Computed example of a mutant assay.
Amino acid sequence: MEIDEQGVERQELEKDRQEIGRVVSSDIVVHSSRHVASVFFPSSSSDWRHWLPVALQLRVLCLRDPCLLLQKKMPKEKRDMWTSRMEKGTQHWMDMERCNLDKSINRTALQENFNKNFFGQHLAHDMIYQALTEHMDNKNPKKPLVLSLHGWIGTGKTFVSKIIAESIYHWGLGSRFVHLSPPHSSMSSFKRLRESAKHCAASLFIFDLMASFENVNNIQFLLEDPIFHQSIFILHSYEGSVAINKVALDFWMAGKRREDICLEDLASVLHAELSNQSSVYSNSGLITKNLIDHYVPFLPMEYRHVKQCVMAELSQRRLKEDDDLASRVASEMIYFPEEHEVFSLYGCTTVASRLDRHL
């Protein structure tokens, strides 16, 4: 008797879907060493497609750190079963995602996300939106789009990369065509990225914390390879943040509006800091060979921007917006410089954990 392996697999997957629908009916809290977040499940729905965004959210939250999933009143064996089956089901649907070779982009969602959730970064907003849409409109670019994001802690570099990923690929950071690279990647890791690009020329590569000369040289190796000409590279760096912060403080001290800061005010000081001998960008091919298309400055976050982050976090958790609560959380942040206390020392990075203490 011949066995229909695909048919058996489909039946098993359907059982998994139904079982997950029965097991999971309330909130799950995801704990990791970097963040704590609440994930809300549509308990009234048994349609597996409604569970996929939740599964993806869990997958993305756990990309960098091992996570412990805790379900209220769920026995350990049920929790373990749910975790493995959710992973299996999610991977099944993610594997069906196709490479975005036609370079389509959800402009409406991108702009809406920028306007609703990307705070205090008028320069980055305009630069990234224009660069991204122009690159996607060009169906046969000569080189990949390379964005180098520079700014202080918690100013939105990682968050905007998430928005970009979601505007290009349905699964966002969880897509198999979106690659997140740690700060110290080996040459073998970079070679694996090249192999990935063979399967999808329009991939998105995100490099967190440009921290070593070796890392920069390896990235240069990728950028000079013609196989990546349709890809997008996003580089995150703290370098230049001191110069950016100083310009922002000078404007504040002079009584000028933050929104009046223009790229010309930052371009020369940012270039000077990146050209310093201690910079990993200095004398690298990234600069000398003009491989980077845009150096995007991220301004330090003020009290009002932290409040906006709190309100956005409340909305994400499906809680009622509370201006008094947002003010209390924002007031707990540490601000610098000490004599003026203008900018949040950690940006919006600790907003979620601080909000937890008030709920």
Score class of each variant (00 low, 15 high):
Gln121Arg: 11
His125Leu: 09
His125Ser: 12
Met127Val: 09
Ile128Lys: 01
Ile128Arg: 02
Ile128Met: 10
Gln130Asn: 15
Thr133Ala: 10
Glu134Gln: 14
Asn138Ile: 04
Val146Ser: 04
Leu149Trp: 03
His150Trp: 03
Ile153Lys: 06
Thr155Asp: 06
Gly156Glu: 00
Lys157Arg: 10
Lys157His: 07
Thr158Asn: 03
Thr158Glu: 05
Phe159Asp: 04
Phe159Met: 05
Val160Asp: 02
Ser161His: 03
Lys162Pro: 05
Glu166Ser: 08
Ser167Pro: 04
Ile168Phe: 02
Tyr169Gly: 02
Tyr169Arg: 03
Tyr169Thr: 00
Trp171Cys: 00
Trp171Gly: 00
Trp171Pro: 00
Trp171Tyr: 12
Gly172Thr: 01
His179Lys: 08
Leu180Met: 06
His184Ile: 11
Ser185Thr: 02
Met187Cys: 05
Met187Gly: 07
Ser189Tyr: 05
Glu195Asp: 13
Ser196Glu: 06
His199Arg: 14
His199Cys: 11
Cys200Pro: 05
Ala202Tyr: 10
Ala202Thr: 13
Ser203Gly: 15
Ser203Pro: 03
Ser203His: 10
Phe205Gln: 06
Ile206Trp: 12
Phe207His: 06
Leu209Gln: 15
Ser212Gln: 14
Phe213Ala: 13
Glu214His: 13
Asn215Pro: 06
Asn215Tyr: 11
Asn217Ala: 14
Leu222Cys: 15
Leu222Thr: 12
Leu223Lys: 08
Glu224Trp: 15
Glu224Gly: 12
Asp225Phe: 11
Ser231Trp: 09
Ile232Asp: 10
Ile232Ala: 13
